[in-house]
Amino acid sequence: MSTIVVPRLYTGLKCHHVAVACIVALVLAFCNTYVTSVIDVNIATTFGKVVVLAFGSWVGLKDSGVVTGLAAYGVIVATVSTASDLTQAFRTGYLTLTSLRATFLSQAAGMALG
C-alpha cells in the first residue's frame, strides 16, 4: 500500500524507491531490535540519517533528492522504531512476569486500534 500512496505524495520518490526502502527497513528493524534488546537504546534515527544520504544521492539533487531522502527517512524510521517498541514491550512483559501471549495480543489490539 505504501508503494502506491507515498509516491503520489512525493513526486521525486518512485515506486521502486519505496519498495527498496521497505526491504531495507526490514533488515534495519532486525538490527535495531537486537541493539535495543542488548543495550536498551533505540537507534532508529541513526539508521534514518544514513537513509537520507543514501536515497538523496540515489535520486540526485535536480530530481528533488532532498525531499526524497526525507520521505524515505519517514518510511524507514516508522518501521524500524515500531519494531524496537515491540521489543521493549516484550522486555517489560518478561520483567513483570506477564505471559507472552497477553503481551502480543495487547500489542496487536493497540496496533489495530491505532
Rank of each mutant, 00 (worst) to 15 (best):
V6P: 06
A112D: 09
D85F: 15
C22V: 05
F55R: 01
L105T: 09
A78M: 14
V66T: 13
S64G: 07
S57G: 01
I4S: 13
F90S: 03
M111A: 14
G114E: 08
Y94A: 14
D63I: 04
W58Q: 03
A109S: 15
C22R: 09
G60V: 01
R8Q: 15
Y10A: 09
G12F: 00
A109G: 07
A89I: 03
V77A: 03
I43E: 02
T87F: 11
A108I: 15
F30M: 10
L61F: 09
G65K: 01
V27L: 13
A102C: 00
V77E: 05
T82W: 07
A71P: 01
V51Y: 02
P7C: 06
T36H: 02
V5M: 13
A112V: 15
V77K: 00
G56S: 03
T96F: 11
I4C: 08
Q107T: 15
I43S: 07
L28W: 15
A25E: 01
V67C: 08
F104H: 04
P7N: 08
V50G: 14
L113D: 07
L61W: 04
S64Y: 08
R8C: 08
K14T: 11
A89C: 08
Y94L: 12
G65L: 02
C22A: 15
F47P: 00
K62Y: 14
F47S: 01
R8Y: 05
T96L: 13
H16Y: 10
S2Q: 12
A112L: 14
